[in-house]
Design a protein around this nucleic acid. Structure first.
Length: 484
DNA sequence: TTTTGAGTTGTTCGA
DNA sequence: GTCGAACAACTCAAA
């Protein structure tokens, strides 16, 4: 009778789970275990909303495990110590876990492996960070050639996806703690936390359903095939054009492989150029995810400093009041404030808005990108160290194939382009609710009479812009000039 | 080793 | 309103 432990970390799923499947192949009994790591529960980068999503996800996972004759055991403490006692309590002879590539996770897993039988399986990314390398064996630092090589590696097909096990045999008697009730996932966070929800969203977004996915009622899905409009619609903050799958990929309620297979299949079925572009662009986003995970794997120092050393010398101003205004969504630039309030209220921000607010913080306010990176991690349900760091360094121009220094987003123009009717702004900045289209992106230009009519007095109901765009732009260009 | 082509997501200015 | 060029130089990847 062999037993093993399935140590769940970022693979909250039963379908297409190489870790779980291996554990079931190699052993008769499998104990699903989750360990609450105090270091991750209480760090500077912890988000209460992300914890809430995680706890809810654990509850969902516990339910589906019970439907399959198993149960989830939750412990809290240092992973090495907890796993040691779990091994002795269960007499298991192996621990199976999905490999994780962040610096903290790698250090933790090395420590565990020093004394305990830890076996890692792939699944977080499509390709392992060491599987996509230049011909000389060095890692890529530019996305486009990386993605070319990524696509040349063997890609999965529908048949490769692993079915969810119907039965998991877990002997009774292992005890743990209750999954915490607090923080709770409130209704403002539009992400029900379950594998089933992830599969529904993948289906509604790509129109692809694979026989290996857990069953659900396809009839309940209304929106279909947004992936085919993705190329155009994804940038519109006022539309629902993105996949909204990031939290599910973050916790592995969806595997990278399931997402890639859906993208490739959708691509094959595309019947015009626009549809094909949509599927290709979404696949590209999935490759970006692998890319930034690989960057953090090969260059772990990016967590602390710029990918390019000289940019550590950027003359940041780091004004606390400016930062506070940004955090609260009170910069006086409607599109920036809408994005920040969406983040703080709902735990998620539209990708286009992320770029706009990030550019504003780094370039208009000359605040260190690490402040913004940390704030994002403190609020994002989908917060992932690799993607978040990569995105911030790209915006700041300090990273791998970064945004050119002279590319300073104009928050007015960005608003006009990507929220043309101001619907996104009015949704998240209620004090601008009655402001007309003419002034929605530049409310400070309203004459006093119009302000009164719009129930929005600038300086009282809604702030004056904290910086003037043209001046701030020039100040940013000068600052970046000093590094050159 | 040298050379060459290319690089996510923009803005501004002047014709 | 629309359009193309300039914004700089640098580093990377691959031949």
């Amino acid at each position: 009778m062999t037993s093993s432990i399935w140590w769940i970390r970022r693979d909250f799923r039963l379908a297409d789970n190489q870790t779980l499947t291996t554990a079931l192949d190699k052993s008769e009994h499998v104990y699903p275990v989750f360990i609450l790591d105090p270091k991750l529960l209480n760090s500077d980068y912890t988000a209460q909303k992300r914890l809430a999503f995680m706890f809810e996800g654990l509850r969902s996972l516990a339910e589906v495990l019970e439907e399959r004759g198993s149960y989830l055991t939750v412990r809290e403490g240092d992973p090495v110590g907890e796993l040691e006692s779990l091994l002795s309590e269960t007499k298991a002879d192996a621990i199976y876990a999905q490999e994780d590539y962040s610096p903290y996770a790698r250090r933790r897993d090395e420590q565990v492996a020093e004394t305990l039988p830890l076996k890692l399986a792939p699944g977080l990314t499509l390709h392992h960070p060491t599987d996509v390398l230049k011909s000389d064996g060095d890692p890529y630092t530019v996305f486009t050639p990386y993605s070319r090589t990524w696509k040349k590696q063997p890609l999965p097909q529908t048949e490769d996806l692993l079915s969810a096990p119907k039965q998991i045999s877990t002997p009774e008697g292992l005890t743990g703690i209750e999954i915490p009730d607090e923080p709770a996932l409130d209704e403002a966070i539009p992400f029900p936390a379950s594998e089933k929800e992830a599969q529904q969203r993948l289906y509604s977004f790509t129109g692809q359903i694979s026989r290996q996915l857990p069953t659900f009622k396809a009839a309940s899905v209304k929106k279909t095939n947004a992936i085919y409009a993705y190329d155009q619609a994804r940038d519109r903050t006022d539309l629902d054009g993105t996949s909204r799958l990031s939290p599910y990929l973050r916790f592995g309620m969806l595997s990278a492989r399931q997402a890639v297979v859906a993208a490739l299949t959708a691509s094959e079925k595309a019947d015009d150029d626009e549809a094909a572009d949509g599927a290709a662009t979404w696949l590209s986003e999935l490759i970006w995810r692998d890319f930034y995970i690989a960057i953090l794997y090969h260059f772990p120092y990016v967590r602390q400093s710029s990918f390019r050393e000289k940019y550590d010398k950027l003359p940041w101003i780091n004004d606390e009041n400016d930062f506070e205004a940004w955090c609260q969504g009170k910069t006086g630039y409607p599109i920036v404030d809408a994005g920040m309030r969406q983040l703080v209220e709902s735990g998620w921000m539209h990708n286009r808005a992320r770029m706009i607010v990030a550019s504003f913080l780094v370039k208009h306010l000359l605040i260190d990108w690490r402040w913004g990176e940390r704030f994002f991690m403190q609020h994002l349900v989908d917060g992932d160290p690799a993607a978040n760091n990569g995105g911030w360094q790209w915006t700041a121009g300090t990273g791998t194939d970064a945004s050119p220094y002279f590319r300073v987003f104009n928050p007015i123009l960005q608003g006009e382009k990507f929220d043309p009717d101001g619907a996104y702004i009015r949704r998240w900045v209620p004090e601008l609710g009655d402001v007309s289209d003419k002034y929605i992106h530049t409310p400070w230009k309203m004459p006093v009479k119009i302000q009164r009519e719009a129930n929005c007095r600038i300086g009282q109901d809604y702030p004056e812009p904290i910086v003037e765009h043209k001046e701030a732009r020039q100040r940013a260009l000068d600052a970046y000039d000093q590094v050159k």
